[in-house]
């Protein structure tokens, strides 16, 4: 009977996430399509106007990035998705309801985070693959490989921004909210401010670990909110 209740609660949570994300969760994907179109026409325009040589030299020797408008797409998508998922749960002290669900709050949190991170993974995975495919139309595979390596830190910034936004929503102390925002901004800036291809190749494992730490940090903030919430 208890299992049935828990299963129903999980399905209820999934349904709630579906309701939150079914329209608003599509916005980043719409922006992705626009950005991919922009990237295609950037390369196509350069090649049509000045020839393939000009495009190759712009990319290889002048570090021109046809996908430059995508720099902040994963970052803004991460913030957006976390806000869509957590604002309805946390605003107006509604987080207290979260602790009265018939399912453990940490499992519920993992479910919500898993859905959001999964959606962000689909977005960033689609971004990298589609951009690599677009570049392969105009340039050798080496350029496509390096463009994925240039996009990866921006994608990681999206995951950091997602976790930090979730943390800020769950956090109940205004001072600590500011603290989390400031600390998160340091890592997000480190991942997005570099110019040129392949600038984070050596550091990607470390920055990946940092993104994972941000997700790991959410649990204790929820626990603290629970204690402070008088549960």
């Amino acid at each position: 009977m208890k299992n049935t209740h828990a299963s129903m609660a999980v399905r209820g949570l999934l349904y709630k996430e579906w309701i939150k994300l079914r329209y608003l969760g599509l916005l980043p994907f719409a922006l992705l399509l626009i950005a991919l179109g922009d990237s295609f026409y950037d390369m196509h325009g350069l090649k049509s106007a000045n020839g393939g040589q000009a495009l190759w030299h712009a990319v290889i020797f002048r570090s021109h990035m046809p996908f430059e408008p995508m720099r902040y797409l994963p970052l803004s998508s991460g913030i957006w998705l976390a806000a869509v998922q957590f604002a309805p749960e946390c605003l107006n002290r509604r987080l207290r309801l979260f602790f009265h669900l018939p399912v453990d709050e940490h499992k519920a949190l993992c479910l919500i985070l898993g859905l959001g991170a999964g959606l962000l993974s689909a977005l960033t995975g689609g971004l990298c693959l589609a951009q690599a495919a677009l570049i392969s139309l105009f340039m050798p595979v080496e350029a496509a490989r390096l463009s994925i390596l240039a996009l990866t830190p921006w994608c990681l910034a999206g995951f950091v921004a997602y976790a930090v936004t979730a943390l800020i929503f769950i956090e109940t102390s205004p001072v600590r909210r500011l603290w989390h925002a400031g600390i998160g901004a340091v890592f997000v800036l480190a991942l997005t401010d570099a110019r040129g291809y392949g600038s984070h190749v050596d550091g990607l494992p470390w920055f990946g670990l940092i993104a994972a730490l941000w997700f790991a940090a959410i649990g204790n903030v929820l626990e603290r909110a629970k204690r402070g919430g008088g549960s």
Binding site: W179, V186, F187, I210, L213, A216, A217, G219, N220, V221
Partner: peptide
């Protein structure tokens, strides 16, 4: 929870 607390503390120290 300890790992979670350590994670946030380590991130804060790094920043």
């Amino acid at each position: 929870m300890l790992i979670s607390r350590l994670a946030l503390a380590v991130l804060s120290v790094l920043a």
